Amino acid sequence: MTTMQATLAMPAVTQLLPLIPELVLVGAAFGLLMLDLFLKDSQRVFTHVLSVLALLLVAGLIACGVGVGDDTSVLNNMFVRDTMADVLKISTCLISAVALLFVWPYLRDRGLYKGEVSVLVLFAVLGMLLLISAGSLIMVYLGLELLALSSYALVAVDRDSKLASEAAMKYFVLGALASGLLLYGMSLVYGATGSLDLATIREAAPGVAQPMLLLTGVVFMIAGIAFKFGAAPFHMWLPDVYHGAPTPITLFIGSAPKLAAFAMVVRLLGFGASPLAAQWQPMLAVLAALSLVLGNVIALMQTNLKRMLAYSTISHVGFLFLGLAGGGAEGYAASMFYAISYALMATAAFGVIVLLSRRGFEADNIDDFKGLNARDPWSAGMVLCVMA
């Protein structure tokens, strides 16, 4: 019996057990979407609170090992649940829950909060969870697009702001370009190996009849990955999106999605294309060097704090790529620790900006922090800790 036949012969319930956290999340998202139809504007806090509780519930289910069995991959190896996936998923859910805590008061004070904001965050998190557990090129693209489409809408939540609309348009156009590059690379890899399954691609890569076709596909995938990460020289969308989006939305898209992007690199390159490591590792090293130089140098010239943090993100991506370019279990473990640490610190940095903001004062320019220590020493201390 082949692997596919054995997988399909498994009971349907067994196939769905590892997906229990994801099924709970999608059920909560659709349920809250329907509930929002019957709520007044003054009652939408319930949607928001229930969204936070849903994320905490999903994190708890994953932490308790609900759905974990003898098989770590189901759905014909399209969905993989392992230790790396569980750690990244728990971190993603917790960071997203913290981001939602900042979203409600900020958007409410500005009259921007709608019930679909929290639902879009849930769908974006669902895309991240699918991307983290992807065992097939199909699942990678499905999770990536679910995350991207939700993020585009979140950036444009302030429809009356020209800055937010421009940022959303740039994000959409360049995100579509990145998705096209990634999808084209995947199609070339499929053409060279005859499979969409990452494990099969890994086995077939050393003996493919057209190695140049496979390598070209990997190059296009790296370009798409660099766009999604915001690595130089594919970083042109990042500062504008960070600047234009409402600050708590910037907090969300600048933290948790980096964990999903890290998992995508490990699944696609560290696992699927591991036989070609000698070819793709130097490419990541070049991207790391460019990101470190451009990110740090251009950040010094910024006057807007959100744009400065955007270029800081680019430089941090360079550090993350250094571990991935080194390869091996130690390099991936170091990069994973760095990705989680960065996501937490990005949450704290943008969180401080949100806390210091008030109606008519966004606190997103560096000059806005002049004299902060004299006015509010406690807040100045928090800024010192998270920005250091």
Rank of each mutant, 00 (worst) to 15 (best):
M78E: 09
G351E: 01
G111P: 00
S341T: 14
F271A: 06
N296G: 14
L182K: 02
L181K: 12
L276I: 08
L94V: 14
R108E: 15
W378G: 15
P18H: 09
L300Q: 12
S179W: 12
A299P: 01
G272Y: 08
N373F: 13
P11L: 04
Q210K: 13
F234W: 10
R358W: 12
F337L: 05
A346V: 11
M345T: 11
A256T: 07
V26R: 11
A374N: 08
T83C: 02
K370H: 06
M169C: 06
G207K: 02
S179D: 03
A226G: 06
V52F: 12
V317W: 00
R267H: 08
V52I: 14
L320A: 07
D160W: 07
S165T: 11
V383P: 02
D368Q: 14
V208G: 05
A153E: 05
V98R: 05
L287Q: 02
A299Y: 03
K258A: 02
M169K: 12
A232K: 01
L196H: 12
I353C: 13
V80L: 08
V157D: 01
A168M: 06
R375N: 09
S312G: 13
I201A: 02
I314Y: 11
C385F: 15
V317H: 00
V155T: 13
S118V: 10
V218H: 10
P11V: 02
A256H: 00
S274F: 00
P239E: 05
K370L: 01
V49W: 10
L39W: 01
S312W: 13
A124V: 00
L120R: 07
P246G: 07
D197P: 05
F337H: 05
M387C: 07
A134W: 15
A148P: 00
L130E: 06
V45G: 11
V140L: 15
L137Y: 15
A374L: 14
V98N: 06
S73V: 08
K170P: 01
M345C: 09
G194L: 15
A288D: 01
A273L: 12
I90D: 07
L122P: 02
G115P: 11
